[in-house]
């Protein structure tokens, strides 16, 4: 349902990685293209805002959050009917001459709980899949990345680092940070 592989191994990555920071989005797109051309898919992209060009360049799978929404909404719908019908059967008191199981008014509750549970499940789905909340940011996180810079975090062998650095520098990366052993945070695994 969600990226199970990532989820299980999210804190286990101990390998080397490289953060390349780009001042421009077109350079970032070139960087993604070059990495893919070299057959290296194990990297994460950091951006201050989402952009269709980045999505197209990365070609990641659709977010599984929608499954959470659907399951949550259906659970809410069933809970609404179960709560109203169940309690009416449990306290069988005729009010205003209406049947014990009054479908139209109970439908209102089912409708509301569909939305409530759907929204809660959406939020939970987002938090699980986006690996939030996180106590620590990635060690190589750069504070410019939330403002007006872009980043590519490449997960690779220590020996490959120089090669990737050269490749990304050529397409416009301006600064680099390296990490060799330490835990690099939950997002350090590329999505499948």
């Amino acid at each position: 349902m969600f990226d199970l592989y990532d989820y299980r191994s999210m804190n286990k990555y101990k390998g080397s990685n490289l953060m390349a920071v780009f001042p421009a989005m077109d350079s970032l797109l070139h960087g993604i293209h070059e990495l893919k051309k070299a057959g290296h898919e194990n990297f994460l992209v950091y951006a201050p805002v989402p952009h269709h060009d980045i999505e197209h360049a990365l070609h990641r799978p659709k977010s599984p959050v929608r499954v959470f929404t659907l399951v949550g909404a259906l659970t809410g719908f069933c809970t609404g009917w179960a709560l109203t019908i169940g309690s009416a059967m449990h306290y069988p008191l005729i009010v205003g001459g209406k049947p014990i199981i009054s479908i139209p008014p109970f439908g209102v509750l089912a409708y509301i709980l569909t939305i409530l549970f759907g929204a809660l499940a959406t939020m939970i789905g987002f938090l699980i899949n986006a690996r939030l909340p996180q106590l620590h940011l990635a060690a190589l996180y750069d504070e410019r990345l939330s403002s007006d810079h872009y980043g590519i975090q490449v997960f690779c062998e220590e020996g490959e680092m120089k090669e990737f650095e050269k490749m990304l520098k050529q397409v416009g990366a301006r600064s680099f940070k390296r990490e060799t052993v330490a835990n690099v945070g939950r997002d350090a695994i590329s999505p499948k």
């Binding site: 994460l44 950091y46 201050p48 990641r60 939030l132 909340p133 996180q134 939330s146």
Partner: peptide
């Protein structure tokens, strides 16, 4: 812990 990764 938001970092703006493509995953997030």
């Amino acid at each position: 812990g938001w970092q703006g990764t493509d995953n997030q």
